[in-house]
Design a protein around this nucleic acid. Structure first.
Length: 293
DNA sequence: AAGATAAGCAACCGCCAACTG
DNA sequence: TCAGTTGGCGGTTGCTTATCT
């Protein structure tokens, strides 16, 4: 087996363990053994953990199981609106740097974020018939989905009954403090779109790690969004020609054909998982991408 | 009700850089 | 200096569950 070639198991114990090395899903018993060992000896030295704990697993497997599943601080369940926003925002800046993104979402693992991206976001890119790394899709995220998500978060905060949870909000407040207000501004009060060029990977000239030191508040993010500016941007900034093809407003639903007019910006009932990536957004973006971008 | 398909996610793989003796 | 070891990362696979026909 390949793990032996790569040195995960010592030469001397190779033969005796070769037949017993376990793979696949972890059992409750294995979880207990791993937890007990880590509680006593702490994290790290995973090959030693694998040997000394009695687990017939590679050190890598032990490490992965602990980091992605068994750590006490692991948060399980749906990814909140705030977390979705943060993922989209940070991915636009850092790309597939999952572990780096995960550092800003306490309790979430890089694996979980990666899975979220691949199952939700990339699926939408596919439906839009554009590459997830294409400028079109990045623009769609940056100027359509992210502002919309911001709006939903604000709507949630204004109606306590539909607020996701205090824990997720705290998480977001904590995490967002590393993001500058200018970077998180998509439109100002006058309606013009503000986008920090450093947010655009294709325009970024230097490493963005230095941005970590910048600070902002959530209010900067939530107070500045003007839905009409998004429409303006889609028509002007992204080069969409057809005025009236679709409009958004704070108090109005997305106006399109009747059979496609349900489900946008309707607060409350739906789960956080299907808020950003609903069919209406996809349909609308397909039209815009097809028409003019 | 049953089979097919899609979605979600845990776990593994391969590569690489840092560490160590 | 160098080879072996370890841990971390991103990509991928495959199993389970949900949804559709």
């Amino acid at each position: 087996m390949d793990v032996y070639k790569r040195g995960f198991i010592s030469e001397t114990s190779r033969n005796e363990e070769e037949m017993e090395l376990r793979k696949g899903p972890w059992t409750e018993e294995e979880d207990s053994m791993l937890k007990a060992h880590v509680n006593i000896h702490g994290e790290g030295r995973w090959n030693a953990v694998a040997r000394l704990s009695g687990l017939r697993r590679t050190g890598k497997s032990c490490r992965l199981r602990w980091l992605n599943y068994m750590r006490p601080e692991i948060k399980r369940g749906n990814i909140s609106l705030e977390e979705q926003l943060l993922i989209l925002e940070l991915h636009s800046r850092w790309g597939n740097r999952w572990s780096k993104i995960a550092q800003h979402l306490p309790g979430r693992t890089d694996n979980e974020i990666k899975n979220y991206w691949r199952t939700r976001v990339q699926k939408q890119a596919k439906q839009l018939n554009c590459d997830v790394n294409s400028k079109q899709f990045k623009d769609a995220m940056r100027y359509v989905w992210i502002p919309r998500l911001v709006e939903r978060i604000r709507a949630s905060s204004e109606s306590p009954s539909s607020q996701p949870s205090t824990t997720t909000k705290t998480t977001y407040n904590d995490c967002i403090s590393n993001i500058s207000s200018s970077q998180m501004s998509y439109a100002n009060a006058s309606g013009s779109v503000q986008v920090d060029p450093s947010l655009l990977p294709e325009l970024s000239g230097t490493s963005s790690d230095s941005l970590d030191t910048q600070v902002s508040s959530v209010s900067d993010l939530t107070d500045c969004y003007n839905p009409q500016s998004l429409s303006n941007y889609l028509h002007k900034g992204l080069g969409l020609e057809k005025e009236g093809a679709a409009t958004w407003g704070r108090d109005e639903e997305f106006q399109a054909t009747e059979e496609h007019s349900n489900g946008l910006l309707v607060g409350g009932g739906e789960s956080s998982m299907d808020t950003v990536w609903n069919e209406e957004n996809v349909w609308f973006l397909q039209q815009q991408l097809h028409d003019g971008i």
